[in-house]
């Protein structure tokens, strides 16, 4: 690109066109997610597929848009440890409630759905 020479020394990250390409890829993934959820019957595979696709989007944004890939590894460690802890607490809370009949009253109103 013409502006190549004007780059700062500490410049890191990608070029504008590459960011736009990533944006297109993210859009495509979102459309695929939508299709998998609304129009295609994946059965039991749906939830894992959605999780994987979302994780790809999540990873692309934090590593490329937020420059984690080009930055000091300290940031990655801090963020991923916090994310892992948050996820662990979320899973622990949900399983504590969902697994225990004395906590959640059996639902009376619902027959099927």
């Amino acid at each position: 690109m013409a502006s190549e020479a004007e780059h700062h020394d500490e410049q890191h990250g990608l070029q504008p066109m590459q960011y736009i390409q990533i944006g297109i890829v993210l859009t495509i993934i979102t459309v695929v997610e939508l299709a998998a959820s609304l129009w295609v019957d994946l059965g039991d595979a749906l939830i894992p597929v959605l999780f994987v696709l979302s994780a790809v989007k999540f990873g692309a944004v934090i590593s490329l848009f937020m420059h984690l890939r080009f930055d000091n590894i300290v940031f990655t460690h801090i963020f991923l440890v916090s994310l892992a802890l948050g996820t662990a607490v979320l899973i622990a809370l949900i399983s504590l409630f969902w697994s225990d009949v004395t906590v959640i009253e059996p639902v009376t109103g619902i027959v099927g759905g």
């Binding site: 802890l85 504590l96 697994s99 906590v103």
Partner: peptide
């Protein structure tokens, strides 16, 4: 310290596994 919080809640009807 993150994995012990429910020991404040033994008498609230947690299951035996928990």
């Amino acid at each position: 310290g993150w994995a012990v919080w429910s020991h404040h809640m033994y008498t609230t009807g947690l299951g035996p596994v928990q």
